[in-house]
Design a protein around this nucleic acid. Structure first.
Lengths: 181, 181
DNA sequence: CCCGACATACCGAACGCTCGGTATGGTCGG
DNA sequence: CCGACCATACCGAGCGTTCGGTATGTCGGG
């Protein structure tokens, strides 16, 4: 499983033969197909893991009684740090989306829409109470800032000069200051 | 050529057989291979077209004598509007990067790095003269904001409620206000 | 004006190979 | 001795690419 994620992240799902995954994991294709019915199931597993945790943590923050700005700060920080913590998973997540079968893709998309709408609601709340600027549509702001976060996996390098915490803090800063009235 | 881009954007490069491209273009595979040596050359053509134009327009703006904030505003607007104008190309551009052969990939990466560094230099200039805030690394800000722009192709829909100009204006607004001291 | 010589544009069947998946049989703990 | 677990050998579909061949100009010498 971990072997599969590493290979998918490095070479892409399509370009990784099942035999190579099996070799890297120290088993044979027979064993692999004993546990996973299809190659796609390996990919589906990645999506389930990622989405479950992130959604739960985001909702815990959103439902807390922090001030709005701090909620948003915490949400962005969390998603940045968890993306960096599981960088390979994140790369696979965003790079292989279009290879999923239509049914799975729709489920993933729905889950993501739920996440998006929850954050959007937070921003709209802030716009009503004057915490956030109102001259930009909330949904566009969400797409903008999470777009930035989702590209993280393609340029961040753990050996670089920036630690995960620094990136998380800066990202949250940029998001908040862009929404300040 | 246009047929190929449409198919690549919809199904992905890997999942599009050469025969299908040929059919969509109303020719045969023989004819196609008369003009393109390999399937990858079709993809390379997409990258050349995109990068050439964007780089030229960005440098024209960067070298102009507009104030810094207006330069940045114009650059973001330009890249958003051209992304939306050629949405299929943009989708292919960001979705197929990891399928390029190492040689081509390095060339594309180098070109992108040039673009990145030029914009970074603009922001650093603004930081020195006090136009932009200095408590965030310029290169991180560039990655952040262009990350947001590069995800555009995955959620923007031309039939949606937002016109290309509106998105461009809002994106540039968000970028600038996040960098205001 | 015509004819042979050559170049360019194109066709589409076939090749070689890789891949995801399966069928079969062995092994071992309970 | 049985069923869960797994190794091995194999299948057939699908892929990018090749290649022998044809059709359609182009052009210079007689």
């Amino acid at each position: 499983m971990r072997a599969a994620i590493t290979l998918f992240a490095r070479k892409g799902f399509d370009a990784t033969p099942v035999r190579e995954i099996a070799d890297a994991a120290g088993v044979t294709t027979g064993a692999l197909y004993h546990y996973f019915a299809t190659k796609e199931d390996l990919l589906v597993e990645v999506y389930r893991q990622m989405q479950g945790g992130q959604r739960l943590r985001m909702e815990a923050i959103a439902d807390s009684d922090l001030p709005l700005r701090e909620k948003l700060h915490a949400i962005i920080s969390d998603v940045v740090e968890s993306t960096i913590a599981d960088l390979d998973e994140a790369v696979v997540f965003f790079q292989s989306f279009h290879l999923l079968s239509p049914r799975v893709r729709e489920m993933v998309r729905g889950e993501r829409r739920g996440y998006h709408d929850r954050v959007k609601a937070l921003i709209e709340e802030g716009q009503r109470e004057g915490t956030f600027r109102s001259d930009v549509p909330a949904t566009l702001a969400v797409s903008y800032h999470f777009g930035a976060v989702h590209r993280l996996g393609l340029w961040y390098h753990p050996d670089g000069p920036l630690s995960a915490e620094e990136v998380a803090r800066h990202f949250a800063d940029l998001t908040l200051s862009s929404l300040t009235p």
